[in-house]
Write a protein that binds this DNA or RNA. Structure first.
Length: 425
DNA sequence: GCTGGATTCCACC
DNA sequence: CTAACGGGTGGAATCCAGC
């Protein structure tokens, strides 16, 4: 007889360990057991650390310039983000997980929830098999947390990471939970962030067990409905189910500049580039924007220069994913927002209220249909697929891109670019 | 007061 | 030599105008 109660829900959270670093290691085995980090775009902050790098005290999200010296002294291997590579490896991991369990939800680039209670299996044995398969076939180490709710499964995966030998942690037994909750800090609970944690500490609530013992009327009044959901989940009552594949509502594209930008022409180039990326993404998903928002701002951190931030949006007469149209509108918006004599750090474009491209809502006053540029856009996408990214683009994007991001240490895109395949010499 | 829409806050990876 | 800090998502709470 299995220890689980009849009818009890059971979720597994499969989480890739140090995901971006693990991806780099697949193609560069010399990195194994060496301190290694991956930087955010623009080589700004640390977004992934190997265990060795964690031991050196390098923090998640830490700005790189603060640890540059430490890295040099300890021969830390440093990489710029290589999202094409990570996305491709992620796809392989998720496909493998779907083979094990169709009832699953991709939660992020490196995590997925599986619903296991409807399968007649020994859950822990099954988890072991999943872990071994992903390691053997893809070369990515994962941790797996098992529990009756998603929030507890998240907690279990945390604990699984501390247990390096098995990498699996089972929190289905109520007795086991009772002990664990006494030493699990509230700030590590899924859904409780920095602000909430600070307030909890202020109310002398530090450990999860203390949180669960706090009267729910008080918690609801002070922290809202989200907190009630968290408490229920911690008590083993499942409130969060696997989510449907949610349709995207907005697409945002923005980057910080490699160095401050002051001229309107550079900003227009950048905005054009982001429009092209966003529209391409929309066409790929077969959706159209009903509005577009443009924003720009100076650095949040530079206290010596004046701060400026602005945004504006325009509703489209007809939904569109046409790069030419969207870029034209974005240019108009940006020209209105632009003020000279500022050091700009970032501009961004957001396609708003996306809807299925097949939904046609003919405008009463505009008789023509809005497929004008469909053929051109299709051509653009096909050419760029065939001849490589950015073979064909609008002149407005510019060719120099003096503003573009820093990405000095990116590894080759081994799996997605023919000319960057791994060479065996 | 009530409503819906816009904006801000918070959290996550 | 100095200055240097991501890019997305989504949901809830809150604000505010118009009734």
């Amino acid at each position: 007889m299995l220890s689980t109660r009849f009818n009890q829900t059971c979720f597994a959270l499969v989480d890739c360990n140090n995901f971006f670093v693990s991806c780099e290691r697949i193609f560069n085995p010399r990195l194994i057991n060496k301190p290694t980090i991956v930087l955010s775009s623009n080589d700004g902050c640390v977004v992934a650390r190997s265990n060795e790098a964690k031991l050196l005290g390098i923090k998640m999200g830490q700005p790189y310039f603060q640890i540059e010296k430490l890295c040099r002294q300890n021969h830390v291997h440093i990489f710029s983000s290589n999202f094409e590579l990570y996305g491709d490896i992620s796809k392989r991991v998720m496909t493998t997980l779907f083979d094990f369990c169709l009832d699953s939800e991709i939660y992020s680039i490196d995590e997925a929830f599986l619903r296991l209670d409807k399968m007649s299996i020994n859950v822990v044995e099954y988890a072991k098999k999943i872990k071994e398969t992903i390691w053997k076939n893809i070369g990515i180490p994962v941790s797996i947390g098992i529990a009756p709710t998603k929030t507890l499964a998240k907690m279990a995966s945390h604990l699984a990471k501390q247990n390096l030998t098995s990498g699996i942690y089972d929190l289905r037994s109520e007795n086991a939970r009772e002990i664990i909750l006494q030493t699990f800090p509230v700030e590590e609970i899924w859904g409780i962030g920095k602000q909430t944690a600070t307030q909890l500490h202020y109310s002398k609530i530090h450990m999860t067990s203390q949180l669960c013992a706090t009267p729910s009327t008080y918690l609801k009044k002070r922290f809202g409905v989200m907190m009630m959901r968290i408490i229920n989940e911690l008590n083993g009552i499942s409130c969060l189910s696997l989510e449907e594949v949610h349709s995207v509502k907005n697409i945002m594209c923005s980057r910080s500049f490699g160095k401050p930008v002051t001229t309107l022409s550079d900003l227009l180039e950048a905005v054009s580039t982001y429009c092209a990326n966003a529209c391409k993404k929309a066409r790929l998903q077969k959706i159209k924007a009903q509005g577009i928002c443009v924003y720009l701002r100076t650095s949040l951190f530079n206290k010596t220069k004046p701060f400026y931030s602005a945004s504006d949006q325009k509703i489209l007469l007809l939904p569109s994913n046409d790069t030419v149209l969207i870029t034209t509108i974005a240019h108009d918006l940006l020209k209105k927002l632009f003020k000279s004599n500022y050091d700009y750090q970032k501009v961004g474009v957001i396609l708003l209220n996306l809807i299925d491209e097949n939904i046609k809502q003919n405008d009463l006053f505009e008789n023509k249909n809005n497929d004008d540029n469909k053929i051109l856009m299709n051509l653009l996408d096909v050419m760029n697929e065939q001849w490589g990214k950015k073979s064909l683009f609008l002149a407005a994007e510019g060719t120099q891109k003096l503003w573009s991001v820093k990405s000095a240490r990116r590894s080759p895109r081994y799996t997605t670019q023919w000319n960057e395949l791994l060479l065996v010499l």
